[in-house]
Design a protein around this nucleic acid. Structure first.
Lengths: 187, 187
DNA sequence: AATGTTATTGAACAAATTGTTCACTATCAT
DNA sequence: ATGATAGTGAACAATTTGTTCAATAACATT
């Protein structure tokens, strides 16, 4: 990728992220992003089709990063997606979210949250199906698998939202304990 | 309230709801609502400040209706918010959502879902605090009350979304069973 | 260092949208 | 019948959106 493209893309992401900390997604105009990023109008539209497209790309970048196994060891913590231990996986995700540079709270607390959460749940569902419900004989046969998967991923994103909005008072390890406490008994 | 005001308000609600079934909230313009409702431009703005305001009012109307006790008996079902039985409360809410005239799926599957769900969770939190966790000696002391309340309300709205997006295949009673099955064990 | 390729610029453009104003008309309650 | 209230529709300036295009800058490669 051309160095100019990289710089422009990064400038747009940063401008967008900065704007998200002061106003909600729908209120932000493309013009403001352009001004903040200090780029030409046509440059923005050569990178992204629309504002929605920009958000989509940013989410893809973020979750690809969090949920990719290769990047586990370079992080600031020892928890990994790949080791199959539920608590470790949860803690891994929470650390990434906490230390992330993008303005997640900005994305969440406005209309764009819809898109963000859709991404989040999608990645989580795959993770749950692959690691949590595979090779585990379930005791709770009252509910269908599909319901349970959505319950777990749904509960998780709800927990993350609650956590972020309360300024992440709890540690990722503490939160992982809470989560296990309301999920493990019902699997 | 003036009969003219009622008619205008109703026409706007209906137009908005109809538009929500064909396109997402952010794509809908005030102009389209005006055209669909067949009213004057200035009339719209004398009723609602903005499009967001309209959505807010619609949500308030809806949830006030669902969560008000007085209206329990007039419904198409025998379940009530007031009787304190969790399953009965859940079923009551689900029936209302299912039979509702407003386009809930339209609201949910677009950016306005943020606002809608905020309302929904707020009403649910109050209900949970008042009816579910009051006078119940909790066994699960590993998690704080605040976390548990959010977990329950969060899980509930996630379940409703899953249900609506799957065309409400399950009956409200069946869903209430599912929900109890993943919540009761962890209280 | 020269060259062809590619990214960015900035200005200009039409079309659509937003929220407000105002004089006029229709409908209401009594 | 009448005063009060609600709706009309047209016009308004200000923003925003997405596109186009020729000129310029930065790039990779030889």
């Amino acid at each position: 990728m051309d160095r100019r493209q990289q710089k422009t893309r990064e400038a747009i992401f940063e401008a967008f992220s900065k704007l998200l900390s002061s106003k909600s997604y729908t209120k932000i105009t493309v013009q403001e992003i352009i001004d903040e990023a200090n780029i030409g109008r046509s440059t923005f539209y050569s990178h992204f089709e629309t504002k929605d497209d920009l958000l989509r790309e940013m989410c893809t970048d973020l979750f690809d990063h969090i949920f990719s196994d290769r990047l586990d060891t370079e992080g600031t913590h020892d928890f990994s997606i790949a080791d199959g231990n539920p608590n470790s996986m949860i803690t891994h995700i929470l650390y990434h979210l906490r230390d992330n540079k993008k303005n997640i709270i900005g994305i969440l607390t406005c209309e764009s949250g819809e898109l963000f959460l859709r991404f989040f749940k999608q990645y989580l569902n795959e993770l749950i199906i692959q690691h949590l419900l595979k090779d585990v004989e379930r005791k709770n046969t009252d509910v269908p698998d599909d319901f349970l998967v959505h319950h777990i991923s749904g509960s998780f994103v709800e927990m993350v939202q609650w956590w972020l909005k309360n300024n992440m008072k709890q540690s990722p390890e503490e939160l992982a304990e809470y989560f296990s406490s309301v999920i493990i008994p019902i699997i």
